[in-house]
Amino acid sequence: MIKLYSARILALATDMPHTTRLADPMGSAKKRAPLCGSTVTVDIDLEGGKISRFGQDVKACALGQAAAAVIGAEIIGLDEATVQKGRDELAAMLKSGGPVPAAPFAGLEVLQPAADYKNRHASILLAFDATLEALRAAT
């Protein structure tokens, strides 16, 4: 369990971008991991089908926070298909030994050790799940 909480994961968890909720967002969603109670709320604005503004409120373990930090650092300018691809690649890495997600989400490789901890997977995927739901609400 110690290797799971590496210095890099803890650093990401404490340096999360876009932690201010948006006023009057085009789309918003809150997702909860039932097993651990972690929550992520995402607000987005779109311009030309791409995320132009992003805000997140993350109440999760360090792993969920680290995932949200990587996602938040890369999310501006992306469309729904790219976000969905990143989510699918992260889920495959965690659940079936798939490769590290491709750019722009390659930084999620830091979460590879979490593959062995199935009870953490839902928390790690929350930021993607909330973002995708917010995207759908905005369109």
Rank of each mutant, 00 (worst) to 15 (best):
F105I: 00
P104S: 07
H121F: 07
G86S: 07
G49K: 04
A7K: 11
D129I: 06
L108G: 02
L94I: 14
A7R: 14
G77K: 01
I71F: 08
A134T: 03
I124E: 03
D129M: 06
S96C: 13
T139V: 13
K85Y: 11
A33E: 02
G98N: 13
P113F: 02
S96W: 11
L90C: 07
L90Q: 06
L135G: 05
Q56I: 04
Q56Y: 09
D116N: 07
P101C: 04
A66H: 06
T19L: 09
A106S: 11
P17L: 03
Y117E: 15
T19S: 13
K3P: 14
L10F: 10
L135R: 04
K59F: 03
A115E: 14
G48Y: 13
P104W: 01
G77Q: 04
T20W: 12
G97E: 11
A137I: 03
C61A: 05
Q65R: 07
G64H: 08
L12P: 01
L135H: 06
L63K: 06
S38F: 04
G27K: 02
A60T: 03
M16P: 01
S6A: 08
Q112N: 12
A114R: 01
K31M: 10
R21Y: 05
A33Y: 07
L63H: 09
D88W: 10
I2Y: 12
G72T: 03
D45S: 12
G107T: 07
R136V: 03
D15C: 10
R120K: 10
G86Q: 01
A68D: 00
R87P: 05
A33I: 03
G64E: 00
V110G: 03
A62Q: 05
E133L: 12
A23Y: 08
I75P: 01
T14W: 11
L135I: 05
Q65W: 15
A127H: 04
A114N: 01
R53P: 12
S52W: 12
L111N: 02
L22D: 05
D24Y: 13
R120Q: 04
